[in-house]
Amino acid sequence: MQRLVVLPTSRTGWALTIAFVAVVVAGIWPVIDLVNRAVLFLGLPLLVVWSYVLIFACFAVMLIANRVIEWQEGEDD
């Protein structure tokens, strides 16, 4: 039992996990270093724009994941 862990069991599951992790990684170092510039984009500081890109990326990833789960549940039925 000691080597048993919960991991995704399908390609779709892995794809969603990678998407979740990618969104999180995009908000921390070293990625955040890439957008840490004193420049404006659409009138806002780049770091602020990036923060809101991440916020809406979280929304998008979960929206897609919901569709996948509903499709899988339909298939299981």
Binding site: V23, S51, C58
Partner: peptide, 20 residues
């Protein structure tokens, strides 16, 4: 300054935690 936006980022990540 903009360092405050770490709060917005982690709150969004808490939504991922809630989803899973």
């Amino acid at each position: 300054g903009v360092a405050v936006f770490y709060v917005a980022v982690y709150l969004a990540y808490l939504a991922l935690v809630a989803w899973y």
